[in-house]
């Protein structure tokens, strides 16, 4: 369990990190919490020549409210997100998702930005990030750009991030009254990753589903918005039957993954089950009937 030789850098500032990234190009990998990169390096499945450790970098771990949004620094750990009183009050979906990741040790080290940038098809956050319609901010030496979560995930382990870019901030909305959200997950028994993970966010207006966003992880090569589910619900009055019927569309048109723990068919079926469960819980929370 010893990685191939590499050169280690621990930049103190974002500028320095970006300079290093520019200099070393695709021979460099960014190290955040290290929970995906380090095991791959130790197994020598990944052998970057340069490792740029963002752990010493100041100013990328924060959770703060800005103009009705909550801005989260990319180096914020899962544990900080799980326990943040600001998030628990204004965007509990993210805290609920963080609490579902791995175990205490993983949550103490792993970071939001690291997980999203790695884009593991079974990671938990992507579902919630999609359901929250988060904004992803990426810095490079050329400047700053932001994309919507829906555009961020491109394929298995592949995101919008271009060479030379660092994901620096994730902005999620503060959820107002009448909005409820929930993350429901079927865990892989060995790794704890999501076999299926569904995040649902609904806003009720006059008893109807005014706004709805459903993010699904674990099912396909990348996390996605279950637009078919959303379309089947939008503007309608929430009922047990409607939610169940809409949830049937959760994996429609998706190239479902298959592995030892779940066949493609079972994954698709579970996508429907967990979509319904997440929707039911989100609707109940929006209506204030359940915590």
């Amino acid at each position: 369990m010893i990685p191939a030789p590499f050169e280690y850098h621990a930049p103190k500032s974002l500028e320095e990190a970006l300079r290093l990234l520019d200099r070393h190009g695709d021979e460099a990998k960014l190290l955040a919490g290290g929970h995906s990169l380090l095991p791959m390096m130790k197994l020598r499945l990944a052998a970057p020549r340069f490792v740029i450790d963002l752990g010493r970098l100041k100013g990328l771990d924060y959770i703060r409210e800005e103009q009705g949004m909550i801005a989260i620094g990319a180096m914020t750990t899962h544990a900080e997100i799980e326990n943040s009183s600001l998030l628990r009050a204004k965007c509990p979906l993210l805290s609920e998702t963080a609490a579902a990741i791995g175990d205490v040790q993983v949550r103490n080290r792993g970071t939001l930005g690291g997980s999203l940038a790695h884009a593991d098809p079974a990671a938990d956050y992507p579902a919630s990030i999609l359901a929250l319609e988060a904004q992803m901010t990426m810095n490079s030496s050329m400047g700053v750009r932001a994309v919507d979560a829906a555009e961020f995930f491109l394929d298995m382990l592949t995101t919008q991030l271009r060479p030379g870019e660092i994901l620096t901030e994730i902005r999620v909305p503060a959820l107002g009254k009448g909005t409820g959200a929930a993350y429901c997950k079927l865990s892989q028994p060995a790794s704890g990753y999501a076999v299926v993970g569904v995040a649902a966010r609904v806003t009720l207006a006059a008893g109807k589903l005014a706004q709805i966003a459903v993010g699904v992880t674990g099912v396909g090569p990348k996390a996605y918005r279950a637009v078919n589910v959303e379309d089947a619900l939008r503007g309608k009055k929430a009922s047990e039957k409607l939610l169940a019927e809409a949830a049937r569309h959760a994996a429609r048109g998706v190239e479902a993954l298959a592995d030892l723990h779940a066949s493609a068919g079972y994954r698709s079926e579970m996508a429907a089950v967990f979509t319904r469960r997440a929707l039911e819980r989100a609707v109940a929370r929006a209506a204030g009937t359940k915590a």
Partner: peptide, 17 residues
């Protein structure tokens, strides 16, 4: 080897890609 042992959940997709 190593890929077979640790990569089973991603191998199919990787091969397709």
């Amino acid at each position: 080897g190593m890929i077979a042992a640790v990569g089973q959940r991603m191998i199919d997709v990787a091969a397709r890609r």
